[in-house]
Nucleic acid binder design. Structure first.
Lengths: 316, 316
DNA sequence: ATCTTTGATAATTAATGGTTATCAGCGAAT
DNA sequence: ATTCGCTGATAACCATTAATTATCAAAGAT
């Protein structure tokens, strides 16, 4: 004797509705593709479970009882709910039709996504991306914890539990005030940087460390007293003459249409740049979709931003 | 290999939601009172059926996939629908909480039910009666066909497939115009009726035949040229002097408060009356409730109309 | 009367869902 | 580095459930 309140089987509900709408066990059985005794036993046990009679059987047809009539409505709702469930599953299983939680660094997202998302949406109008910004460090942690499904982060990422698909390589531009002694030069050699105060973001940002490395390479000095909280503040600081800075190419491309008080140069040496990749948990069942997504992002970027960044090869 | 589009088991949905809301197979298993492998296999087959992954399993906990996250909502709706179904069944199985289709003759319903239904409703506030009028003949046919669940009809009813519970016996009153030669007499003997034109309803009404029999007994003449379509028209016809009539006691009681132009007498002989009973299909699973209902109707009638009709004993 | 149709029943088999015992991978604590 | 405790997956087995076919009895139609 089960102590728990038993719940009906979905199949029983199905049979119930089928019989009720045909007013016949046999016809319902035929329609359902099962034998008639199957219905008899299922309905009997359902009735026993509910503690009431659903049908009034007679040798001449089957009739709903008042109780059955009442429950039929509810039962139909169940069928409907199940149908909707299955339909959702159907469309979702087609791929790229769901909401994915995407993480991006604040030094990339606002300058990349507005160029990419519309095209992506056009291709998969059921695909939704729930975008959240975070530093690469937090993004990777969030990935592991499941608060993100995918993320765009600077490469390299060397973690066994994560899969990476490279997207594109973005140059970093050297930015100086318009009244700076180096302003006007198209290229600047590393030796000319000696003694320059290079501004950068706060230490928690990955971008900070990147610039730090670059400065070590080039022999420039990091200005650690004033650190920007965003690329925009960084740019303002340069304009105010607090120093020079390296800014991501996509930022320069999207935010600095009119040069105003700033001058943008190249560094004459090995190229200064950062690489972005799409990452996800290696165990993610949707990994095939993510690869597809990466490919499409590359395609879109190559089409719309090909002159700003260099698109990478996908891992094949 | 099943060619039909398989549908998930309700149990699978249940397990799915349980695991998703606990983020753990083992905890969900514990809560559900089953072993953990049971969940593993059920979810696996559900995933196979849907063609997508619901969970991302790892050795350190379980995570919903984006697809699973999407479906979880739908799955919860299913649980809800099932819960509502079961709750409905629960209350309905308590008895007298549903809508029953009740048939009454037009010569009784309007004069009986307004006195009975309110009290009935007070006792069972979930009970609903869907009342439809029809001649007894049609009521009995409708019962067999299932368009009524129960009906109040004149007795006797002699049908094997129907169960009858007697309710009460109602006297028929002799009604004459105020200016009639017999007006003013409290009782009238059958011999005084000789030659009187007795008005009645149209032939399709059971009441017609009843009056016909009475007239044969008493030696009175039926006026067949003008027949009323309702008790009200019948009364009007008597007022207009077209003849005399027999009217049901309940009608007289509820519609003729001020005697106006009509006089009501008794017939001095064997009592003239009709008996009403509650009938239902003998095969109806709710028959116990119907008996209960009959008992309650008797009780209410005895309380409120005991001076007008004579309440019968129930079949015990 | 006879035949068809209704749902119920019985006996049997197939499938399903559950169990216990055990495993392998990971993380945390030693 | 190793151990321990946790995760879900797996295997082998068993109980229950749900289907099958064959048959029945009752009611209606012919």
């Amino acid at each position: 004797m089960p102590t728990q309140p038993q719940t009906p089987t979905f199949r029983q509900i199905e049979y119930f509705v089928a019989i009720a709408s045909r007013c016949s066990y046999r016809r319902a059985a035929e329609e359902l593709g099962v034998s008639q005794p199957a219905l008899t036993t299922q309905i009997r046990s359902l009735e026993a479970l509910l503690g009431l009679s659903l049908f009034e059987r007679s040798r001449s047809g089957t009739l709903l009882t008042p109780e059955g009539r009442e429950l039929l409505e509810q039962a139909r709702k169940m069928l409907l709910a199940m149908r909707e469930f299955r339909e959702s599953a159907e469309t979702i299983s087609q791929g790229l039709q769901t909401t994915y939680k995407l993480g991006v660094p604040p030094t990339l997202g606002p300058y990349l996504l507005p160029r990419v998302l519309p095209a992506l949406h056009a291709q998969h109008h059921r695909l939704k991306l729930y975008v959240r910004e975070g530093t690469p460090r937090n993004l990777l942690r969030g990935l592991s914890e499941g608060s993100y499904d995918i993320a765009i982060v600077p490469l390299p990422v060397d973690r066994e539990d994560l899969s990476v698909e490279p997207l594109f390589t973005e140059p970093l531009k050297f930015v100086i005030p318009a009244d700076h002694r180096l302003a006007g030069k198209k290229t600047v050699s590393p030796s000319q940087l000696r003694g320059e105060k290079v501004l950068t973001l706060e230490g928690q940002h990955h971008f900070h460390h990147q610039v730090q490395e670059i400065c070590q390479d080039l022999g420039a000095d990091l200005q650690r007293d004033y650190e920007g909280t965003s690329l925009d503040t960084l740019r303002q600081m340069v304009v105010m003459g607090l120093g020079v800075a390296f800014l991501p190419g996509l930022y320069v491309h999207s935010e600095m249409h009119n040069p105003e008080a700033l001058h943008v140069s190249e560094i004459k040496s090995k190229p200064i740049r950062r690489q972005h990749g799409l990452v996800w948990r290696a165990s993610a069942p949707s990994r095939r979709l993510y690869r597809e997504l990466a490919a499409q992002i590359r395609e879109i970027v190559s089409e719309r931003l090909g002159d700003v960044v260099e698109v990478n090869q996908g891992i094949t």
